[in-house]
Amino acid sequence: MADLNSISQSKTRSSESILATNKVLRSTYALLAMTLLFSAVMAVVSMYVGIPRGAAMICTFAGIGIMMFVLPKFENSSTGIGMVFLATGLLGLGIGPMIAAYLSYPNGPATVATAMAGTGGIFLALSGYVLTTKKDFSFMGGFLMVGLIVLFGAIIVSLFTAMPALNMAISAGMILLMSGFLLFDTSRIINGGETNYIRATVSLFINIFNIFTSLLHLLGVMGDD
């Protein structure tokens, strides 16, 4: 009888865990869709207003700063949702001048559209794979962290040297690394490693944002922009 009770309790706990995971997943994708849309709207506003590059850079720094220092304090309250919108909106404002610059080139609109479609394709394919197979990619954690440190080091070098090949390699590396993070982050949500949907949304947003900007850079180079 005790064994039957234990099996029943274990089943209840397991179904509760699945329900909780599904709730986190649904909330994450809903918030991610809204923040991506909001960020895109802010990017369009930034292009129409014609925000100067310096101001755009400050918006980007502010967005990153909010994500790093302010958001962790509010991630368990409803204020956190407002903070996510503020940070992603600022990143959208920050990216506006870059998109405007690409759009001003002859092949620009096609390049931007291709980068957007490509980012969507990568996100859907990788997320779809993890959601379907439910595989655990947490073993990639160390590899991804080390890869990111190496990539940041390379970006610092590229800031003070004029090496177009290095810039292309950084963009290609960033796409690969962020694709790896998409697998890692999505599998963490599915397998219960991430239970906070605000944190999960920010992680996925950063992955998508970096894939888009890096892909835009690579396609811009190929399109002679």
Partner: peptide, 17 residues
């Protein structure tokens, strides 16, 4: 999976070249 991403990006780069 990451190889698939590389191929996809190469395809996109070829399409805008």
């Amino acid at each position: 999976l990451l190889g698939g991403v590389v191929l996809f990006v190469l395809l996109l780069m070829k399409s805008v070249a």
